[in-house]
Design a protein around this nucleic acid. Structure first.
Lengths: 128, 128
DNA sequence: TCTATTGTCTTAGTCGACTAGAACAATCTG
DNA sequence: CAGATTGTTCTAGTCGACTAAGACAATAGA
């Protein structure tokens, strides 16, 4: 089961946060085809957002072909994303986690790490 | 000089994107105390956002004590962020860049990498 | 079949982000 | 001093995200 975390202060619309979390979970293999997403009413109770907001997120995912909504039953994961094997992901996760530990040990704050990672990933200035 | 990139499709308010880019630049040492930020009118011409939006971003940075606005002259970086030495940052950047290359070589798409990085950094499920 | 559960839709309204265009104020430069 | 440059303020308006509360529709399970 997936737990949603909606950060109201982030500035990012709630429905986008929900959508992204589902996509990432599918991408990382934490959600597989056939798995059921939390109920609309569940998410409402858990995250405090409105039902329409959750519905909007789910509808976009359905439109993308990623999930399937069955009235009276629930919303189910339909497809997969990403082609990476679980073991490969695990190994890479471990290496990156080590890098983070090293960065922290070097005195970098969380925001320093964020900035560094973002700079490289965005392919932007001083990036790749 | 810093170049701003405002992504209108990201959902994140433009003024937050601008503010974050300044903070990150300061954090990575690409902006130092005394450096001048792009003119409000410059940003308007470059990124297409409204002057009031740019102003809102700059005002928040000033309120945070990070920059100083001098009317008729410009907006200048006032303080520093982060405590990491440039060489340390460089070394860490290089190691992370290598990790990214390895991930790509393993078949991961950009979004796979994003998801993995975010999962670890957020300290969330399967995180640190 | 009956009932609870779940997705879905409707209407109405609030609020923040953003735009538009103009004007003003302080500073720098020649 | 004169003109250009820059930050700043103002008013008015648009649009999307979100809330609120209720009702409807289809499915699952007893």
């Amino acid at each position: 089961m997936v737990e949603f975390r909606v950060d109201r202060a982030s500035g990012l619309p709630a429905y986008l946060q929900l959508g992204r979390q589902v996509r990432e979970a599918v991408r990382l293999g934490r959600l597989r085809p056939g798995d059921r997403l939390p109920t609309v009413r569940d998410v409402v109770a858990t995250s405090g957002v409105n039902a329409n907001t959750v519905l909007k997120a789910y509808r976009e995912l359905e439109l993308a072909g990623l999930v399937e909504a069955r009235q009276g039953s629930g919303t189910y994961v339909k497809a997969t994303l990403g082609t990476a094997a679980p073991e490969v992901l695990e190994e890479l996760r471990g290496k990156f986690a080590k890098w983070v530990i090293e960065a922290r040990a070097a005195g970098l704050e969380a925001e320093d790490i964020d900035a560094l990672v973002r700079a490289v990933l965005s392919g932007g200035p001083d990036g790749a």
